[in-house]
Design a protein around this nucleic acid. Structure first.
Lengths: 116, 116
DNA sequence: TTATCATATGAATAAGTATTCATATAAAAG
DNA sequence: CTTTTATATGAATACTTATTCATATGATAA
């Protein structure tokens, strides 16, 4: 009767988990951010921009691939409000606007070397 | 001639960025992890599991949706080696195996409240 | 053994996403 | 004003991914 009841323990955990669960809106927002940095080319773009603003053709050099593809990815990152851009003469210069995302990328990169 | 040359500055930045760019393998690995936590239901599953191991039907309760869908997502998370499972009697208990991922989720959650 | 409970799986469909190609825009140089 | 340079865009295609339904597995209880 007072024996360890695993089932009861799990029920308690479930309730606790449900209590701490972020709202659907928060979950959506987090998911959107993670999705933005889940594609290799976008990740590369962001690593490239983490050193400072760059124009599109330099970004293209940094990530490889063709100009149109990079432009589409930049648009996605801009829509996710992770990067912003400004014009300077002929060129459009992109830069990071959400540094939290870069922080998370750096952290994830460090975790890689923890050869789990 | 010694005038501030923006172009030159950007070239320098590009080189620096290229130098710090993770390898393609690292980029792929990071991308895979971020992708794993970019879908709402998987995020919810992980938040639920962050309190300790749970059996599948409790996970289903926690995230909503149907059993089969949750099972497929659990498989994806297991394939990404973010969760693991063990059998206990009739039930299969899932738990987090890669706590780095949880760390990143918590961080991202905190960033949400920075009302940028 | 048979029935039942908990979970996993496969196939089909549906939805989302990346990439390419061709073309459009917009500023600058001539 | 015309041309060139830098970037963006739209449409089409090809991929990838999520979800559902029906069924399979595998442990346990009867």
């Amino acid at each position: 009767m007072t024996v360890c009841n695993e089932e009861q323990l799990h029920e308690a955990r479930l309730k606790e988990a449900l209590g701490k669960m972020p709202s659907d809106g928060q979950i959506e927002e987090m998911g959107a951010r993670f999705k933005a940095i889940s594609e290799p080319s976008r990740l590369k773009i962001l690593f490239a921009l983490s050193g400072g603003e760059l124009c599109v053709d330099h970004i293209v050099e940094a990530v490889g691939g063709n100009q149109s593809a990079v432009s589409h990815q930049l648009r996605a990152l801009k829509a996710a409000r992770i990067v912003k851009c400004r014009r300077s003469g002929k060129k459009i210069l992109y830069s990071v606007s959400d540094w939290h995302v870069i922080t998370i990328m750096e952290l994830a990169k460090e975790h890689l070397n923890c050869n789990e």
